[in-house]
Simulated assay, not measured.
Amino acid sequence: MSPDRLRPPVEPMLAQARPTLPGPGGLRRGVAMELKWDGFRALLFTAGRPGGAMVLQTRKGTLIQDRFPDLVAAAGQLPTGLVLDGELLALTGEGVMDFGALQRRAASSVPQKVQALTKAFPAYYVAFDLLQVEGRPTLAEPYEVRRARLEALFADHALTPPWTLCPSTRDPELAQEWLETWTRTPGIEGVVVKGLQQPYRPGARDWLKVRARETTEAVVGAVTGTLGRPRRLVLGRYDAAGRLRHVGTTTEISPAAAQQLGDRLTTAAAGAHPWEGARFTAGWGTRAALDTRMVTPDQVAEISGDTARDRGVWRHPVRLVRLRLDMPVEDVPAF
């Protein structure tokens, strides 16, 4: 075995967020754009011998191939000595990408439950980079060379689902179309921009990611800070039964917005708020509880959030655009 062969854990290369795609001139100067998936980042390793074990490594270095026996069973399609970077997805029986189902699959280790989840929510692996081929690392090669090798891998081995090649383009108009239209599909949340000459640098934030955002409304159900100077808003929407359901939390709001909102907030009466005793965090994957104060849910916030949602709840903090003093809570979109 070559001493240079990649072995888990390998840190994946990362992306830094930006609000918009580069201008047309920037897009045409040596970059490619790929779809950004709302799944689990995973590196895939195949063994150095035929029939050897396949390994799936999360972004944090955890090995989770035992949670995805369907992918392990399909690994016979892949050549030996391979390392891919990509995204894990899980689909419902209707063929819709479901992050909640993927989360349950990645967290389940009991064999009976793993088998049930595998049957109900089959997994797919979307490959967008090739880090090693035939046991030889390709990290130092430019992205456009790695991409060509990845495309050749899919063509030469006639790979079929669950193995999927991530779409890539150098056309700025097509990338903008992806951002504006494809992101309406559950499971696609934006576009990643990569330099054609970039090597693969583990742990470096050298790529760019642009998430699609939507502007909508929600009810202010609780706040952090004080009623006079709120810092974050905890948001809700009413469901068909008239219950206020939690849908997300904002980033810290501006001093001007805090003053405007503070003049209108009132403390919820004891025992009257549907969230009394509930615990909230700043976002998905964050365990630290927010110190919240329940308020009378009679104020409406216009917010801007990305498309990553789990059962109606924004997984990332949303941004407050403005207060909608002209909108009654009855006109807020339903949960």
Score class of each variant (00 low, 15 high):
V234P: 00
T164Q: 15
G312M: 01
V220I: 07
R287I: 06
A288L: 13
T160P: 02
T281Q: 04
T251Q: 05
V220L: 02
G25E: 15
R264I: 15
E214M: 10
Y143T: 13
R170H: 13
E173T: 15
F121M: 03
M33R: 03
I188D: 00
A218C: 08
R29D: 14
E173K: 14
V332H: 00
E330F: 09
T296I: 05
A270H: 13
A268Q: 02
P19N: 07
Q299E: 10
P142F: 05
A269N: 11
A257Y: 10
R67S: 15
A218H: 07
W207N: 08
D98N: 10
G195Q: 09
G195N: 08
P297V: 00
L208R: 07
T46E: 01
G48N: 12
T185A: 06
R232T: 02
P297R: 00
D85I: 08
R49H: 15
W207V: 04
H157T: 11
E330P: 03
E177Y: 08
L233G: 03
A270Y: 11
Q260N: 13
L233V: 01
D298R: 14
L21R: 02
P161G: 13
A32C: 12
V295Y: 10
G39Q: 01
P172V: 02
T281Y: 10
P50M: 12
G228Y: 03
T281P: 04
L208I: 10
R279C: 11
P199A: 02
L325N: 08
A241C: 09
A288H: 09
L235I: 07
V219I: 10
A74C: 04
L179V: 06
P111C: 06
V313L: 04
G203Q: 05
Q132L: 07
F128Q: 12
V193N: 04
L233D: 01
A301P: 02
D326N: 07
L233C: 01
P230L: 09
L227Y: 01
P167C: 05
R147C: 10
R18K: 14
D4R: 12
V223H: 02
E173A: 14
D326E: 12
P297E: 02
P167W: 01
L71W: 08
R104T: 01
L261N: 06
R201E: 14
P69F: 08
Y143C: 12
L261R: 03
